[in-house]
Nucleic acid binder design. Structure first.
Lengths: 109, 109
DNA sequence: CAGCATAGTACGAACCTCGATATATAGCGG
DNA sequence: CCGCTATATATCGAGGTTCGTACTATGCTG
């Protein structure tokens, strides 16, 4: 799973949201590191719906603009938890390798 | 950075290795979750060399077969540490969102 | 000579993301 | 009214990474 897709799931983890809200929410969640592009977002939502990780959760019209809501399915929440566990395990393994690395002697080579 | 690329860097973190050894090492590091394909590996090595994260570290002929060694540059080690920090931060953010999620009431809805 | 493990190379297909473009409503400044 | 910005959804071509497979090659075993 790529980073933009991960943040779509993460942004939906607490409650249902509409597309545009996901863009701003993912940006905050990632502390500014990830700005979802609209093409990425809707492609990801279509894919995740097809995979059963996300589902439509109603529509609303606010100020004449349509809002389509999305929410995590139970499978989606499981997939997100699994992805988190995988990332933490990967990070731990990489750190243990880095600790085996001979220390840098910056001065005097 | 994608997972296969991440494990190429992680497998090189402790000492120089040759291509084929990276495949078996990445598989162990990931606890069997990631099997590097040869096409993926050498494409990643070429890319990482071009980016200055990995560099050639000598050649050897063992049993008539060529071994090309690769090692992390200082930039490569920094990039790996940055990627680890990013993954840990992303995982933490996702977990805090999952904690806000209304609990599942499996029985009786 | 056939099969297997090791070791590296090459290439098209598939997947995900990027970046740009299009549509639509509402508010603000000129 | 026109242009600009923010909100909101949708589509499409281009690009980068990985996948999957096929290929070359050596040495060992049968």
């Amino acid at each position: 799973m790529r980073e933009p897709t991960f943040f779509v799931l993460a942004a939906l983890a607490d409650r249902r949201k509409h597309g545009y809200a996901l863009i701003t929410d993912a940006e905050q969640l990632s502390e500014g590191r990830v700005h979802l592009k609209v093409g990425t977002l809707y492609a990801a939502l279509d894919r995740l719906k097809q995979q059963g990780l996300v589902t439509g959760a109603g529509e609303e019209v606010v100020d004449g603009r349509l809002r389509r809501y999305y929410e995590l399915t139970d499978d989606g929440a499981s997939a997100l938890r699994a992805e988190v566990a995988r990332m933490q395990a990967n990070a731990e393994q990489a750190l243990s390798r880095l600790r085996l690395r001979p220390a840098l002697m910056a001065a005097h080579g």
